[in-house]
């Protein structure tokens, strides 16, 4: 069997990878188990198999917290995420295009400015941001949080787009220029479609950050009727009692769209990370 490619080495490697996969799956197991437990079971035997799977937990979780149902919170999260990602893609790509293709030497400084913005922690700016946003009436509504996230994540989007654009040959743009296209047409008809792989990367990376963010949404949206999923879920953790089974059930609901999206967009996502244009 010397010609077989499946030897003991491969067996060990495979077994090891299966173990790693199991470890990775463990949190999901607990997530589903706990979400099906009764209020008392949660504390009695948190890791055990539930005696009876309480589907009712999902109904109770769906009712939500702070007068906002989980369904509404889901929609709020989706609106904030989609709008933020759309702004990041549109403004980020145009900004990056200007930063990479401008002839002015200031473009390097603008790029450095964006890079610095990435490494500056958001938390540093929370207090001044909150104060000025409240003065402008941007606290407790969707517009405010969309503007906030767009601003905070713009450096990341620009950084990703610039990296891709720098490696992109100028020829397509030059051809379009000679063909008679103006700046905007060159961008939207030629450059932007070629950015698809990195646009997918920007969408997924920033989308996940916005979708999962808890800190900013807690500060800017708590108590409002546009609260998003993380805030809704946090509502099950009260001052005196935390209903972990409902928290976990709500997390299951929150996870579903993300997993669905990942399965759907996996190929684009990988291509975006590996980069390159194939003509």
């Amino acid at each position: 069997m010397s010609d077989s490619r499946y030897g003991p080495k491969e067996l060990v490697r495979e077994a090891l990878l299966i173990c790693v996969a199991i470890v990775w799956c463990a949190p999901f197991y607990f997530l589903v188990m706990v979400s099906g437990k009764s209020d008392t079971d949660v504390f009695r035997a948190p890791l055990a198999w539930p005696e009876e799977f309480m589907f009712d937990n999902f109904r109770r979780a769906w009712a939500g917290t702070n007068r906002v149902t989980l369904g509404e919170a889901l929609i709020n999260s989706a609106v904030v995420t989609v709008a933020t990602v759309a702004i990041l893609i549109l403004v980020g790509s145009i900004t990056a295009y200007a930063v990479t293709r401008a002839r002015a030497t200031s473009r390097e400084w603008i790029y450095i400015f964006f890079v610095f913005a990435i490494i500056t922690p958001w938390q540093l700016s929370v207090v001044p941001l909150y104060t000025s946003f409240r003065q402008m009436g941007l606290v407790g509504n969707q517009l405010g949080i969309i503007i906030l996230f767009s601003g905070l994540l713009m450096p990341l989007a620009v950084f990703l787009y610039v990296g891709f654009l720098r490696a992109m040959p100028m020829e397509y743009e030059e051809a379009a220029e000679v063909d008679g296209a103006g700046r905007w047409r060159i961008f939207f008809r030629v450059v932007f479609p070629l950015l698809t792989p990195v646009t997918a990367t920007v969408a997924v990376m920033t989308g996940l950050i916005v979708w999962n963010d808890f800190f900013m949404q807690l500060i800017f949206l708590t108590g409002s009727d546009v609260q998003t999923l993380p805030i809704s879920i946090f509502g099950f953790v009260g001052e005196y009692a935390a209903r972990w089974n409902l928290v976990f059930a709500a997390v299951c609901v929150a996870l579903a769209p993300i997993i669905g999206f990942y399965v759907f967009a996996q190929k684009e996502l990988i291509r975006g990370f590996s980069g390159g244009i194939k003509n």
Partner: peptide
């Protein structure tokens, strides 16, 4: 370039992929 009304053929063709 757009106002010159010349057409160019590039070495790598530069067809929009």
């Amino acid at each position: 370039p757009r106002d010159r009304n010349f057409a160019m053929v590039f070495q790598n063709y530069a067809l929009y992929p």
